[in-house]
Design a protein around this nucleic acid. Structure first.
Lengths: 230, 230
DNA sequence: CGCTCGTTTGAGAGGTCTCAATTTGGGTGG
DNA sequence: CCACCCAAATTGAGACCTCTCAAACGAGCG
């Protein structure tokens, strides 16, 4: 029930932990676990109570909601992000389930330890609230896109954002198409049709490779929100 | 640029401020403003930078996103809630606009004062993070409903939640139908058709009056999420 | 009493989903 | 090494949901 000393430098350098005091950090690590999971491992199930704050240190996490056996991906997390912080803070049941997409390393901090440290270490508190605010803004953007854009426009925006983030007009899909479709709130079939529709708007794709051939044209089609640049 | 002493007891009793030190509280109030707005007053515009943390003390606030002149209501806030906290914390542009629905009183705390107090007063920090987490969970629920339910099912769930909250099977709509429709992610026309469809599922409505005549039947139709009770 | 604005109703179009069939691609075992 | 197999992806057809546009209706207010 403790994170080995050799593992801590990486964790220590994460934004969430960087500013906190040495004492708080080592105390917290003594009470936490760093665990490895294979791909497609269930980490959290919707409706359960939060015992730990989870932090993706390595790998990728699929956050999804369930109803009648149907799944919808709400968010996909890469290092270094927390999940599901809001449930831990409010000590209320998870609203989403989580599973690994690829083999992953996850840091698990007991909920009570998070709350105690939050109260004692202002720097850690700042980190928590910054992280939570970032997650909040992320969901808000997804909701806005769902409400105001067609599925093909959402796909176009996703491509634009990916290209911008990777600073490249050509890149490989980082996950299954069906998973991306779910994340964008559409079926695999719609994704497929959407992608072929985008051939007319400055995108060319071959299998998992996507190439933006005309950024200006794609932008015109996607009508990205002003505030999505931030 | 200061809140009058006579006004503070009400504010002081709000969950966000209740636990903080007397010193922090009076310092903060000295630097804040309590302002009255008429109905339909614009408070915040999407894309602007946050100068103040806003808190609805009285009235009701419509939070909405805009694109191409179209509006979509993301959330409706009643006393006592903050908005838009995440932008203030991250010091990034607002993702939504805000306007009053009815004459309202709004407490405005300069962003920098919020951040300073957050660092000095752990009780206030707890309040902030609890509020932010609550808002986060709220958006998450909206997104889940948008993704997994038809518009009529969303309406049914809204009625169920309202009846439960008010502990009454009969109540008046607290806002315009068109506004509620937008909040539920549908057009006024769809709202109207949805409401008449619900006549077959345990709901009866006359103008702004809604009466749940058969809770069990309505629940069966609405398929509420397990975790929405919390 | 007659506006005005919100609501309701109707008709039709568009977007997305479902179901089914086909094709593709990757991985496995012979 | 290759054929096979399975899952994912694509394509097609049709249904459903929701939207748009238009017109009729109704309640509140000057």
């Amino acid at each position: 029930m403790s994170v080995r000393l050799a593992e801590t430098p990486l964790i220590r350098s994460l934004p969430l932990f960087k500013e906190m005091s040495e004492q708080s950090f080592t105390d917290m690590m003594d009470l936490s676990m760093l665990q490895r999971f294979p791909a497609r491992a269930d980490i959290i199930r919707e409706g359960e109570m939060p015992d730990f704050l989870h932090i993706v240190v390595e790998g990728a996490i699929d956050l999804f909601a369930t109803r009648d056996g149907e799944e919808s991906t709400i968010d996909i997390l890469y290092p270094v992000s927390t999940f599901i912080l809001a449930a831990v803070i409010r000590d209320e049941p998870y609203l989403k389930s989580a599973r690994t997409l690829v083999p992953s390393q996850i840091l698990m901090v007991p909920s009570q330890v998070v709350r105690d440290t939050f109260n004692r270490d202002a720097a850690f508190a700042r980190g928590i609230v910054a992280e939570l605010a970032a997650r909040y803004r992320s969901v808000t953007r997804v909701l806005k896109n769902d409400r105001m854009l067609t599925s093909t426009e959402r796909l176009a925006n996703w491509i634009l954002n990916s290209a911008r983030r990777l600073k490249s007009d050509e890149f490989e899909l980082p996950l299954e198409k069906r998973k991306l479709a779910s994340y964008l709130g559409m079926t695999p079939e719609s994704y497929s049709r959407g992608m072929s529709a985008l051939e007319q708007h400055g995108v060319h794709s071959h299998g998992a490779t996507i190439k933006v051939t005309d950024v200006a044209q794609l932008k015109e089609f996607a009508r990205p929100a002003l505030s999505d640049d931030a």
